[in-house]
Structures are given as structure tokens and as C-alpha cells.
Write a protein that binds this DNA or RNA. Structure first.
Lengths: 167, 167
DNA sequence: GCTTGTCCTGGAGTTGACTCCAGGTTATAA
DNA sequence: TTATAACCTGGAGTCAACTCCAGGACAAGC
């Protein structure tokens, strides 16, 4: 049993053009063709493509994934290299996750900022009078708000982010 | 006290060209110039730029950040719109974090796959004999490994990801 | 006062990851 | 059997986000 490019496209949620682009870029050397030259994908091919998409989601470039696939073709001699490549991308990924969490923390602070401003009807409640600069105690006020909410995890995270940003 | 574009560049870890690009794109209408036409950044400007970089890290496009900044210039009438814009990006961000965590889970599985293959000296230990396809019980083996390690959180996450992928 | 460094603008070039198109072949359904 | 749907290739186009460059102005150290 095999699948056409259109079926795989639907299954994986990526366009036909993208699959062909990946093929051109050397990401799919394992996909066979029928007599007419059309691609025929096996279940295993689709599984491998899920791994490729996973690496993409992890922020690995098409060029790097291509290197990984080329190593795969070379056999067992490259096992360790492949392991190291993944380990490296795990580090990147961990950093990305940390960054996004920090960004989220900051975003929540900004949401609080705008929620309170909307309630007050003006942004000025956060400014030093007669300026466009924020009050120095603003972040402290937000911490108090988090404490009142009992959100100690977010509080802890925000304090870290704030320390970093004001470094 | 004010800073030159070069100082800000170092402070924020982005290039001078990128700062000028952001300015051209309408992200920095608040930055003033001196008599000679050079940009002079205040502490508050730098603080605002950190927020812009934060939004960038959250995956917000330069065009969307520009909209946000334009709303800021329009004053209190846009407070609610700004809050909603942030709330929307919070959703995106939460999705990104979830995706990255799932990707991480899958990456760890692949690392285990390669670690065991390296130890065995060949990738074939994971294949159905005489094929290039993986054993159907492979993921189960990994689950057993996680259980033995006592890593029940990762186990739980991996099972979810696996269910989704094998949907 | 001269050299070297930092800044300015407008605009062109680059990169990565697609996305689209022309022109053609094969498969399927009425 | 004929239309239309799905596939093929090579190559051009697009888009976002930079990145670089030419040509010129101002600043700072010696």
C-alpha cells in the first residue's frame, strides 16, 4: 500500500509544493517513484516525514535537516554524529522554550498594564505625572497584584525576567 | 543623559542596521534626533525597545508591532485594542510553547533511539529484520525505559505526543 | 588640522522557505 | 472518448527580515 503526494499532503497538513520543495532540497531521498515517475509514499516514508516536520518545528533549518538525512544514508558510521546533532538542537529548543516562557511572563505584565489602564480610562495612571515615562514602582505594583492573586509561580518567573531586563 | 545608536546596539544585542530597519519600519517614532540629525535614545526609549524585542521574540511580525506602536501614538482611545492585540498574541505564544514542548519530547525519544543504536553499534537493532522500517514495539520500549528511569512526567507527555502523531 | 571612527540616507542585495507558473504527462470518471 | 483531475519538471516570483553599500556629514583624539 502506498500514498500519492496529494494524500500525504492532506495527512501531514503541508502543501504539495512544500513536499516537492523538500524533495528538491534533498530531504526525501527515500521516496520511490512508480513507472510513470510519480512519487509513491510508504507508511514508513510518512513516518520519516513526521520526524522531518518535528525537526522543522524545533527550528532546525532545511539545510541542517538535509545534512541529517544525508548522514542517515551513509549508515551506522554516522550514528554518533546524528545523536550529537539532535543533542545540540535539544539545547536550542530548551533555550527557545525558556525564552518564550519569559516572553509570556512579560506579556502577562503588559496585559495587566493595559487591563488596569482600560479600567481607569487612561494610560496616565501608570506614568510619572506630566511625562510619558512609567512610574518606577509599576513593576512592584504588579508583583503585589500577583501576590494578591496567589500566583506565586508567575511572580517568581516575572521577578527573574525583570531582574534580567533591568540587569 | 542619552545614548547613540551604537551604544543601544551593544546594550540590546542587535545590530545598528537592524535598529535603523526598525526605525524605517515605523517601530521607533519616539526616538528623537539632535541638531546634526543623529538619533538620541533615552532610557525610556531603550526600555520601549526591550518591549519591542520581547514582542519580536513572541513571534509578532514587524508589521504587527508597527500597528501596536501606531495605536500607542493615538492615545487612550486605543487602550482596549492594544490589550486585545496582546491577548491574541498570548494565545499564539501558548500554542508555540506547547508545540515546542511536544517537539522536545519527540527529540528526546530520537536521542534515546540514537543512544541505544550507538551502544549497539548499529541502527538495525531498531528495525524489523531485513528492512529499513522501525519495529512496531519501539515506542513501547522507550516507554518502558522512561518508566525504569522514573520519568513519569516525560512518559505522560510522550504518550500524548505519540497518540497525536499516530492519530 | 588631520585621521579615524561613528553616524546619516536611500536604495540595492541576500537569505530562507516557500509559492506559483508554464507546459507537459498520466489517471479516472461520465 | 473526452474532459477534468492529479501528477511531473524547471525555473521564476514572493515575502519577511534583515544586511550591505555608496556617498556624504559630524565628532574626537592626537
Amino acid at each position: 500500500m502506498s500514498y500519492s503526494i496529494g494524500q500525504v499532503s492532506k495527512e501531514l497538513g503541508i502543501t504539495i509544493d512544500t513536499i516537492r520543495y523538500y524533495d528538491k532540497a534533498g530531504l526525501l531521498p527515500f521516496v520511490n517513484r512508480n513507472e510513470a515517475g510519480r512519487r509513491e509514499f510508504t507508511d514508513n516514508d510518512v513516518h520519516l516525514m513526521r520526524t522531518i516536520i518535528c525537526l522543522k518545528n524545533a527550528g532546525v533549518s532545511v539545510a541542517d535537516i538535509s545534512i541529517f538525512i544525508q548522514m542517515r544514508l551513509k549508515g551506522d558510521g554516522t550514528l554518533e554524529q546524528r545523536y550529537n546533532l539532535l543533542k545540540n538542537h535539544e539545547k536550542n529548543l530548551q533555550q527557545q522554550i525558556t525564552d518564550l516562557k519569559d516572553t509570556m511572563s512579560y506579556l502577562k505584565y503588559k496585559e495587566w498594564y493595559y487591563k488596569t489602564a482600560v479600567e481607569a480610562g487612561t494610560e496616565e495612571i501608570h506614568f510619572v505625572p506630566c511625562t510619558n515615562g512609567c512610574l518606577p514602582e509599576l513593576e512592584e505594583q504588579y508583583c503585589d497584584y500577583l501576590k494578591k492573586q496567589g500566583d506565586l509561580i508567575e511572580l517568581d518567573n516575572f521577578v527573574n525576567v525583570r531582574d534580567y531586563r533591568n540587569r
